[in-house]
């Protein structure tokens, strides 16, 4: 590595440039088709999405609701593996500029080797990782140094039950952004955002954390997106996007019309 190179991270750049209405989309690699990965990523960027979470499918996704369980199941049946995904993403940085995040349950990454995984992500140009079942304690004591050495942001979830002291600790130890889980639930769209949820977003906003906030879980249409953005930098859409591409023969068209419906 060139010594005078300034190490930047695309997630940090994004939040430095933009503070509001950031739209992040999650999809499951290998779904609906094994070779959809690059098509989905390039079309998400072209449609104006700001950040992408690439989901590595897992056999036992305990934090996910029906839709993402199904996409994980289909992706694995289609034959998706970590190695294949890395291969599909080999030259993705020649095609898209926006920040890319990998999302995986711990076991596949652990089996691959956490350090090796971070290294490979770094080579490809991945900017951050979300591993929902890698808890803060383990991250801090075992893996933070590894993540840092590969300039890999570790993004952690915060829920309505996370107390302030812990939120501050998460804010201190992790980077990129904080994933604000919209309610105590597994993933999946529920339509409207309640007043209680708005109060919770405001409560976290008022903590004035170092990291920006993105709201995820249950964000599925323009209305919930706009509401989620009121006190935060933006929001993440997962299940609703998975449903939008589920039956599509024309991925390009369905990606762009779904994103249009959110950003309109």
């Amino acid at each position: 590595m060139n010594q005078i190179e300034v190490i930047t991270n695309k997630i940090e750049d994004l939040f430095y440039r933009r503070k509001k209405r950031i739209l992040s989309v999650y999809f499951t690699a290998g779904y609906p088709k094994i070779d959809a990965t690059a098509t989905i990523i390039t079309n998400l960027e072209q449609s104006g999405v700001d950040l992408i979470e690439i989901g590595i499918p897992f056999s036992d996704p305990v934090a996910d609701g029906d839709t993402i369980q199904h996409s994980n199941h289909v992706a694995l049946k289609n034959g998706m593996t970590i190695r294949m995904l890395f291969d599909q993403l080999r030259d993705i940085r020649n095609r898209v500029e926006i920040p890319l995040i990998m999302m995986s349950y711990l076991n596949p990454v652990y089996k691959y080797g956490i350090e090796k995984f971070c290294k490979k992500c770094h080579e490809i140009g991945i900017d951050g990782l979300i591993i929902p079942d890698l808890p803060l304690y383990e991250f801090e004591t075992k893996y933070k140094a590894v993540f840092d050495s590969f300039n890999m942001k570790f993004i952690m979830l915060v829920t309505p039950q996370t107390d302030n002291e812990r939120i501050r600790k998460i804010d201190f130890l992790t980077g990129g952004f904080i994933y604000l889980v919209s309610s105590t639930s597994t993933t999946g769209s529920k339509g409207k955002i309640s007043n209680e949820q708005m109060q919770y977003f405001k409560r976290i906003h008022d903590l004035r954390l170092n990291n920006p906030l993105l709201v995820g879980f249950g964000i599925g249409n323009k209305e919930s997106f706009v509401n989620a953005c009121q006190y935060t930098a933006g929001a993440i859409i997962g299940s609703a996007f998975i449903r939008a591409v589920s039956k599509s023969d024309d991925l390009k068209a369905s990606v762009s019309s779904f994103i249009k419906s959110i950003k309109a």
Binding site: A63, D133, L157, T162, S185
Partner: peptide, 8 residues
């Protein structure tokens, strides 16, 4: 090794 939703 639980997701944050179960931490509390």
């Amino acid at each position: 090794y639980v997701p944050e939703m179960l931490f509390a």
